[in-house]
């Protein structure tokens, strides 16, 4: 039987009197992938930050590998969870290789330096993600796509059991979107890492995930396989917009587009 990675039970978050998450529950087994979708402001990023314990929760419980999330120390969490933030998040003044190596912090003994093992692991992560060609460059000279790959390399360097990605491909052009998506997909296949990805765009590989959780106004309105999402006008109900479904027969992949004109 697969190990349960996350178990979220009736999670609610209230900020400044506004309910951001309202009794969200789900359970995810290790090795599986979950796409969290929903319109803007549905609470997707908030949910992700709660799963990373970057935000406090108001009600409900989150357990990670069977233990309550708040029983873990920060370093323990960093060895289990790799976080890839939204594109363009924050200014990073370091070079790529220095920044990736810093992700080994959780494995650092107090008052010591990074070891050769740390360097090797960082090197391998940079190799896997294809960032070696620009490893010596400064982060602020990178394009959005290159930068995002570096963030994925950093998360990998933490050797996590779960990767959490927040809109990993938003604001990227088509080529970089495709590259980043393929990278995530390859990593999942090769390493068996559990993945939780937040996205507002259904065509961002959502159909390749094992599970989909749809949020609307903070509530979980759908949980199931991605194919079931396309049935019974479910998408219309989630996004309040009519959709048209396109099927690409050679690959068997479905794409959805909002229908224009009608509202």
């Amino acid at each position: 039987m697969a190990v349960t990675a996350y178990n979220v039970d009736n999670l609610s978050v209230v900020m400044d009197g506004k309910t951001i998450l309202d009794q969200v529950s789900f359970s995810l087994e290790e090795g599986a992938s979950l796409a969290v979708i929903g319109p803007n402001g549905a609470g997707k990023s908030t949910l992700l930050k709660c799963l990373l314990r970057l935000l406090p929760t108001d009600r409900g419980a989150i357990s990670l590998f069977g233990a309550p999330l708040d029983q873990y120390g920060r370093r323990e969490l960093a060895r289990l969870l790799g976080y890839v933030p939204q594109t363009g998040a924050g200014h990073v003044p370091y070079t790529v290789d220095a920044f990736v190596l810093m992700a080994r912090y959780a494995y650092l003994a107090p008052f010591s330096h990074f070891t050769d093992t740390d360097r090797d692991i960082a090197q391998k992560a940079m190799e896997q993600t294809g960032v070696l060609p620009f490893a010596k460059r400064h982060m602020h000279t990178l394009s959005g796509g290159e930068r995002q790959k570096v963030f994925i390399a950093s998360a990998l360097t933490q050797q996590p059991r779960i990767m959490l990605l927040d809109e990993a491909t938003a604001f990227l052009d088509y080529r970089h979107q495709a590259e980043v998506l393929t990278l995530v997909e390859t990593l999942r296949r090769d390493t068996g890492v559990t993945a939780i990805a937040v996205t507002h765009d259904l065509n961002q590989g959502v159909m390749e995930f094992d599970h989909v959780l749809a949020l609307k106004e903070g509530r979980g309105v759908f949980w199931g396989a991605p194919s079931a999402l396309l049935e019974d006008n479910r998408l219309e109900a989630i996004y309040d917009a009519p959709f048209r479904l396109l099927r690409h027969e050679p690959s068997g992949t479905s794409y959805v587009f909002p229908e224009k004109g009608a509202s």
């Binding site: 120390g73 920060r74 969490l77 960093a78 810093m102 912090y105």
Partner: peptide, 20 residues
């Protein structure tokens, strides 16, 4: 020194890297 390095990249990211 290592902690200061992480603080510079922002609190959320620093915390997700294991910084208290």
């Amino acid at each position: 020194r290592n902690e200061l390095n992480l603080l510079v990249i922002g609190e959320d990211l620093a915390m997700s890297r294991g910084l208290d």
